[in-house]
Nucleic acid binder design. Structure first.
Length: 422
RNA sequence: GGAGGCGUCGCCUAGUCCGGUCUAUGGCGCCCGCCUGCUAAGCGGGUUCGGGUUUUAUCGCCCGUCGAGGGUUCAAAUCCCUCCGCCUCCGCCA
C-alpha cells in the first residue's frame, strides 16, 4: 500500500511509476479523489458525533419532562450519526480499494520496460564447453535417475505432474544445501526460522499475494487457509501489527520452509524435470529495516545470495529486473540466473526484492524512532531454492562417465566427492 | 472432538454482576524537569494506537480505539450474537 499523504504531496511520482510498470496512472487520481471524499465524510461524522456526546451527558443529568425532550432530540441525532458513520466507512472502503490496486513506487534506477528489458549487471564464472571435453551433457532428469537422486516417474503416479521424490543422494544434497545455507545465514547474523506453511488470508493479503498472483496460490477451501509460496509470507506477517524499537533494527530472519505453487497458466512450460514444481523447500532471507537503509540492505542480500552460489561453483549472471516485471510489492528486484547447460541458457535461481514500506503498511509493521512511529521497510531474498540449485549442480558438475562432482562445501554431508551412477 | 475459564492504552491491574461525569483506576517500567558533591531516594509532569483539523515545526482542539466484527439502546469496557487467540480438564493422536 502507498501512503496517501505521500500521494497528495507528489502525485506525479506515483503516476510516473505506474506508467513505467505499464499500469494505469489514472488510479493515482482516483485515489486522491477518494481520499478527498473520505476526509469530508469524516469531518461531517465527527461534528455530529461530538454533538451526540454532549447531549448524552445532558440526558444523563436531566429529569422528567426535560429528559423526555432531550431524548426526542437525541433519537433523531442517533440516526444521523449512524448514516454519517456508514458514509465514512464506505468512503474509506472506496479509498482502500483503489489504494490496494496501486503498485509500489519503482526505484528511479530500475530499467524501464517489460520482461525482456532487464539489464545484465554481471556474469560470474564461465559455462563449460562440453564439446571440447568430448561428451554430450545429460539433463538433470536423466542424471537424477541414473544417480538414484530424483524420481519423477513415481511422483507422477503418486501426486501427478510437477512433483518429484528426492531419493538417496538427492535427499542428501538437499540436507547438505540446507546446512551450508543456514550456517552462512547464522554467521551473517540471521535468526533461522522454521515457519508455518499454512496461513490465514490476512497474511497472504498483506504480503501482496492475493492480487494478480492469487491464481498461483493454493487455498484450502474448507478451513480458509492458504499454503505459502514462500516463507516471505510467514516471515513478513511475523511482526504484523507490531511497533518495533528502532534500536533493534535491522532484523534478519532466515526462513526455512516448504513452498507450494499452483503454477497455473504455465502449461507446457518446463514440464520436464524439477525446474518448475508444485512443492519445494526453500531458505529465504528476510529483513526489516529503516526505510533509509533499504537500498543498501538490498545490495547486502544480493551479496549473500552470490556468496552462497559462488561456493557451489556454478556459472551465473545477475540481472536487474525491468519495471514491468517487478510484481506489485517490489520497488527494485535483482535475480540471479544459473547457467543450465542442456538448455543453453540462464535460469532464475534466486530473487531479491526491496519492498520499501509497501508491505509494512499493509501489515501494520512500524518502528518507534524517537517520538515518531513510521512504517519499516521489508526486503526479501532467496538464499537457496532447493530443486533449481540441485538442477544446476547436477548439470554443471557432471562428468564424462555419468558421475557428478560434489562441490566442496557439500561433501561432508554427502560423505563423498563424487556421486556415481547406481 | 467435548466441557469450562480468560482477553482493558509496554508489563501487571481496577472497572463488567446492576449501561450514563469512565474524559478507563492504580502500580511497575520508561521519558522530561526539579532537588542533590555523585548515585540512590524524593518531588512535579509526561507516557495506547489510528484519524481529522490548524498554511500538520511546535502547542492545541476534536473523533475513534477496552481481542475483532455485528446487534440492542438516546447512550456500551459493561447487555446479546458471531469470530479469533490464550489457558485448564477430558477424549484422541505423531
Amino acid at each position: 500500500m502507498l501512503d496517501i499523504r505521500q500521494l497528495r504531496d507528489d502525485p506525479d511520482a506515483a503516476r510516473r511509476s505506474q506508467t513505467a510498470r505499464g499500469e494505469d496512472p489514472s488510479l493515482v487520481d482516483a485515489a486522491l479523489a477518494a481520499d478527498e471524499q473520505r476526509r469530508s465524510a469524516i469531518v461531517t461524522f465527527e461534528a455530529l458525533r461530538s454533538e451526540q456526546k454532549s447531549l448524552g451527558k445532558q440526558v444523563a443529568a436531566a429529569q422528567g419532562d426535560e429528559k423526555q425532550q432531550l431524548l426526542a432530540r437525541t433519537k433523531e441525532l442517533a440516526t444521523e450519526v449512524k448514516s454519517a458513520e456508514v458514509a465514512v466507512r464506505e468512503a474509506e472502503q472506496r479509498l482502500s480499494d483503489v489504494q490496494l490496486q496501486l503498485s509500489n513506487l519503482v526505484e528511479p534506477d530500475a530499467p524501464v520496460g517489460g520482461e525482456e528489458d532487464f539489464a545484465v549487471l554481471e556474469h560470474v564464472g564461465t559455462p563449460r564447453d562440453f564439446a571440447a571435453e568430448g561428451f554430450e551433457p545429460k539433463d538433470h532428469v536423466d542424471l537424477g535417475k541414473a544417480l538414484g537422486a530424483i524420481d519423477v516417474e513415481r511422483a507422477a503416479k503418486v501426486s501427478g505432474a510437477r512433483f518429484y521424490y528426492l531419493t538417496g543422494p538427492g535427499a542428501l544434497l538437499e540436507l547438505a544445501l540446507v546446512n551450508v545455507a543456514i550456517q552462512q545465514a547464522v554467521a551473517a547474523g540471521f535468526t533461522p526460522m522454521i515457519t508455518p506453511v499454512l496461513v490465514k488470508p490476512a497474511a497472504m493479503e498483506g504480503t501482496g499475494f492475493l492480487g494478480q498472483a492469487a491464481e498461483n496460490v493454493f487455498h484450502l477451501e474448507q478451513d480458509d487457509f492458504y499454503l505459502i509460496g514462500t516463507s516471505e509470507v510467514s516471515l513478513a506477517a511475523y511482526h504484523s501489527d507490531e511497533i518495533l524499537d528502532a534500536s533493534t533494527l535491522p532484523l534478519h530472519y532466515a526462513g526455512i520452509s516448504t513452498c507450494f505453487r499452483r503454477e497455473a497458466g504455465t502449461y507446457g512450460k518446463d514440464t520436464r524435470g524439477i525446474i518448475r514444481v508444485h512443492q519445494f523447500d526453500k531458505i529465504e532471507m528476510f529483513t526489516f529495516c529503516a526505510p533509509e537503509d533499504a537500498v543498501a540492505e538490498h545490495r547486502k542480500l544480493l551479496a549473500w545470495e552470490r556468496q552462497f552460489l559462488d561456493q557451489l561453483e556454478i556459472p551465473y549472471r545477475v540481472i536487474d529486473v525491468a519495471t514491468g516485471d517487478l510484481g506489485s510489492s517490489a520497488a527494485r528486484k535483482f535475480d540471479i540466473e544459473a547457467w543450465i547447460p542442456t538448455q543453453g541458457k540462464y535460469r532464475e535461481v534466486t530473487s531479491t526484492s526491496n519492498c520499501t514500506e509497501f508491505q509494512a503498511r499493509r501489515l501494520g509493521i512500524r518502528m518507534r524512532d524517537g517520538s515518531t512511529t513510521r512504517p519499516v521497510a521489508t526486503l526479501n531474498g532467496t538464499l537457496v531454492a532447493i530443486p533449481r540449485v540441485i538442477v544446476a549442480i547436477l548439470e554443471n558438475h557432471q562428468q564424462a562417465d555419468g558421475s557428478v562432482r560434489v562441490p566442496e562445501p557439500l561433501r561432508g554431508t554427502l560423505g563423498t566427492d563424487v556421486i556415481a551412477p547406481i
